[in-house]
Amino acid sequence: MIWASWSDFFSMGGYGFYVWGSYLVSVACIAGEIALVFNRKRTLLKHLSLIHESTKQEKRDETTS
């Protein structure tokens, strides 16, 4: 374990801002992309189920009328 203490691990030899800046943005980008992908899937399924509902509804109306 080459870091004497957690504090100098975060200071990263004085370059902490740059190192953690880039890693934080990387994590943010990856998390953001995952969120976007799943959000796209969720809205699609919701949209599909709406169509599904309406077609089922129409069928029911036809059979009852």
Binding site: M1, I2, Y15, V19
Partner: peptide, 20 residues
């Protein structure tokens, strides 16, 4: 972060290389 040694020239800043 924990195994790679400190770079004699760039100090710790080179660790960005692992994502860059």
């Amino acid at each position: 972060f924990f195994v790679a040694p400190t770079d004699f020239q760039q100090g710790e800043a080179y660790r960005i290389i692992f994502i860059h």
